[in-house]
Amino acid sequence: MLSESQGSAPMEHLNRYYDTDYVSHQVKAGEHRQTIGGMWDKIGQMQFDYLRAQGLQPGSTLLDIGCGCLRGGVHYAAYLDAGNYYGIDLSRDLLDSGYDIELAAAGLQHKVPRENLRDTDAFDIAPFGVRFDMAIAVSVFSHLPASYLRQCLINLADSMKTGGTLFATYFHCPPGHDFNTPLRHPAGKLSHPGKDPFHYREEELVGAAEDLPWRLETYRSWEHPRDQWMAHFVKIDQ
């Protein structure tokens, strides 16, 4: 993610996931599922089903951005060939709870080498040394400004195969709404232009990919229970 010197908001003001003491306390209390927003079964299954419909195959290499404690990761690990699931997250505590609790309970630790899960606050993807077929970021950029989406696209470009797709959820601001005012979504969530949770217009999505080897292919509702939409960014040749 961007540093303060790059013009982003101070990290401690972005969202609660940057409060490492809070996250650590929640994980130690056994509340890791609730810490990432709950809806464990619904959203975990939903994102897996979505990627299957978009062409995910057992032999695909998948990067789960903001994977947390593996709400979706448990489903992906069960389906993908051993070693093909990778995840990054801001919190080591959440990653460890996903590996030591969720994957262990599902009997899936053998399919995900521990080194396939990296904690990073900078979308640091290159150390994996993998060219990914797909990447997904669920409930990540809904908590971050569009500049972070751009930084993710910059870092991901060298690690994504041409034709590969990043699927990223976000709160959609429709053309008829004043972007600079809060927006109430059908599920009741209130999003904002400059604080968590953030909303984007089409212009912010397009701008995130400007002059980068990415094309915004589509953005649409995918019936998310909190009304987050899904944007598809396809890696292109330049």
Rank of each mutant, 00 (worst) to 15 (best):
Leu2Ile: 14
Lys28Tyr: 07
Ala122Ile: 08
Gly98Tyr: 06
Asn180Met: 02
Leu2Gln: 15
Ser221Trp: 02
Ile36Ser: 01
Thr61Cys: 13
His224Arg: 05
Asp178His: 11
Val140Gln: 08
Asp124Tyr: 03
Gln34Tyr: 07
Ala168Cys: 02
Thr181Tyr: 02
Tyr219Asn: 05
Gly73Tyr: 11
Ser147Tyr: 03
Glu12Val: 08
Ser5Ile: 03
Gly83Arg: 06
Phe123Asp: 12
Ser3Arg: 07
Gly188His: 01
Val138Tyr: 00
Leu51Gly: 08
Ala157Pro: 04
Leu153Glu: 13
Ile65Trp: 12
Leu95Trp: 00
Tyr76Glu: 12
Gln45Gly: 15
Pro145Asp: 01
Ala135Ile: 09
Ile43Ser: 10
Thr120Glu: 06
Gly207Met: 03
His32Pro: 12
Ser97Asp: 06
Tyr17Leu: 13
Gly107Pro: 12
Thr218Gln: 09
Asp227Thr: 10
Glu115Leu: 02
Tyr22His: 05
Asn155Ser: 03
Ser139Ala: 12
Thr162Phe: 02
Gly207Asp: 09
Thr169Asn: 02
Ser5Asp: 07
Thr169Cys: 04
Phe167Glu: 07
Val130Tyr: 02
Ala78Glu: 14
Lys42Trp: 15
Met46Arg: 12
Leu80Lys: 10
Gln26Val: 03
Cys152Pro: 02
Ala231Gln: 13
Leu156Ile: 08
Pro197Asp: 00
Pro175Tyr: 06
Ala78Phe: 06
His224Cys: 11
Asp64Glu: 10
Ser159Arg: 12
Trp40Leu: 10
Asp196Lys: 06
Asn15Tyr: 07
Trp40His: 12
Leu183Pro: 02
Asp21Ala: 03
Phe128Tyr: 04
Gln6Val: 12
Gly188Asp: 05
Pro193Leu: 01
Asp178Cys: 11
Val112Ile: 08
Pro213Trp: 00
Arg33Tyr: 11
Leu144Arg: 11
Ser97Gly: 04
Cys173Glu: 13
Leu2Arg: 15
Gly129Pro: 13
Arg71Phe: 12
Arg150Phe: 01
Gly72Pro: 11
Ala29Leu: 13
Ala77Glu: 11
Ala53Phe: 13
Ile125Ala: 09
Gly66Gln: 14
Ala105Glu: 05
Leu144Asn: 13
Arg215Cys: 03
Leu103Gly: 04
Gly66Arg: 14
Pro10Trp: 07
Tyr219Ser: 06
Phe128His: 02
Glu204Tyr: 00
Pro10Thr: 14
Leu80His: 08
Glu102Cys: 00
Phe198Glu: 04
Glu210Val: 05
Val130His: 04
Ala157Glu: 01
Glu210Asn: 05
Trp229Thr: 09
Tyr86Ala: 01
Asp196Ser: 06
Gly98Cys: 03
Gln54Tyr: 12
Gly164Glu: 09
Lys189His: 01
Leu94Lys: 01
Val140Trp: 05
Leu63Gly: 09
His75Gln: 13
Asn15Met: 10
Gln54Cys: 15
Trp229Leu: 08
Cys67Thr: 12
Tyr76Phe: 15
Asp121Trp: 11
Gly188Met: 03
Ile36His: 05
His32Phe: 15
Arg16Thr: 14
Met1Gly: 15
Gly44Ala: 07
Pro10Phe: 08
Ala126Gln: 09
